[in-house]
Amino acid sequence: MLRLPDDLRGAFKEPLGPVYTDTERLLSKAEGQIIAVGDVVTYHLRTADRDPDVAVIDGKTKREAVGDEIRRVLSGDNPRIEVENPAATLSEELLAALREAVDSDEHTVVVVTEGEEDLATLPAILVAPVGSLVVYGQPDEGMVGVPVTPKAKTDARELMAQFEGDTDAAFETLGI
């Protein structure tokens, strides 16, 4: 549905919020739903006894398969929605799954079976209720906690609007 243009890749180098290395400190900032994007982030939240309301995982970290301990912690009986999301894209399947997972009353895991979840942070910010916290990994630095505010939503929408493809249809899929 949407593809990240090469000239926009640099916009994702800088974290969209504060970087945390201490999970408890990160969780002290959480007031509403927590949406985790990434296997290692989800692992850290779960081992701190806070199962994210929504987790988006793909079985990889830094393009390599996650280890057995992470895989074990990420397995479980939460409802799962499997999607495909090719690298450097946001597929319609992923966007619809995010919307469904955020709207669910159950802790839900969106599993990217083919492709990657790297760009799911922006649509997660857009579908999350104001007051939520979207958490994603910043490689070799820690976890980024993005408080979902009206400004964060505006910034995420402006970035997504620069993707190649049918952004209006993408926003419609997200219900925004």
Rank of each mutant, 00 (worst) to 15 (best):
residue 159 L to Q: 12
residue 147 P to M: 01
residue 154 T to V: 13
residue 111 V to Q: 08
residue 156 A to M: 10
residue 109 V to K: 07
residue 124 A to P: 06
residue 99 R to T: 10
residue 135 V to K: 00
residue 112 V to E: 05
residue 139 P to Q: 08
residue 143 M to I: 13
residue 153 K to D: 06
residue 139 P to K: 09
residue 112 V to W: 04
residue 100 E to V: 08
residue 151 K to L: 12
residue 128 A to N: 03
residue 110 V to H: 04
residue 144 V to Q: 02
residue 155 D to S: 08
residue 114 E to F: 06
residue 131 G to A: 11
residue 145 G to H: 03
residue 133 L to P: 04
residue 132 S to C: 05
residue 161 A to M: 11
residue 141 E to K: 13
residue 123 P to V: 07
residue 106 E to N: 10
residue 148 V to N: 03
residue 99 R to W: 14
residue 116 E to H: 12
residue 110 V to I: 15
residue 139 P to G: 08
residue 106 E to V: 08
residue 136 Y to V: 02
residue 156 A to D: 05
residue 112 V to Y: 04
residue 133 L to A: 04
residue 118 D to M: 10
residue 129 P to T: 07
residue 125 I to F: 06
residue 159 L to G: 04
residue 110 V to Q: 02
residue 137 G to A: 10
residue 98 L to G: 01
residue 104 S to N: 15
residue 140 D to I: 06
residue 153 K to N: 09
residue 147 P to K: 01
residue 129 P to Q: 10
residue 135 V to R: 00
residue 156 A to Y: 02
residue 101 A to Q: 04
residue 125 I to A: 00
residue 153 K to Q: 08
residue 153 K to H: 12
residue 135 V to W: 01
residue 158 E to N: 14
residue 112 V to Q: 03
residue 127 V to N: 00
residue 129 P to Y: 10
residue 160 M to K: 03
residue 99 R to L: 15
residue 104 S to T: 11
residue 103 D to F: 05
residue 152 A to E: 02
residue 115 G to L: 09
residue 118 D to K: 07
residue 149 T to L: 12
residue 161 A to W: 15
residue 154 T to Y: 15
residue 130 V to D: 15
residue 114 E to S: 13
residue 117 E to G: 04
residue 124 A to E: 02
residue 134 V to M: 05
residue 137 G to D: 11
residue 134 V to H: 00
residue 137 G to T: 01
residue 148 V to M: 02
residue 128 A to V: 07
residue 130 V to R: 11
residue 133 L to K: 00
residue 123 P to F: 06
residue 154 T to Q: 13
residue 144 V to L: 04
residue 102 V to M: 03
residue 105 D to C: 08
residue 160 M to W: 09
residue 145 G to S: 07
residue 124 A to Y: 01
residue 135 V to Y: 01
residue 148 V to L: 06
residue 117 E to Q: 15
residue 127 V to D: 00
residue 100 E to C: 03
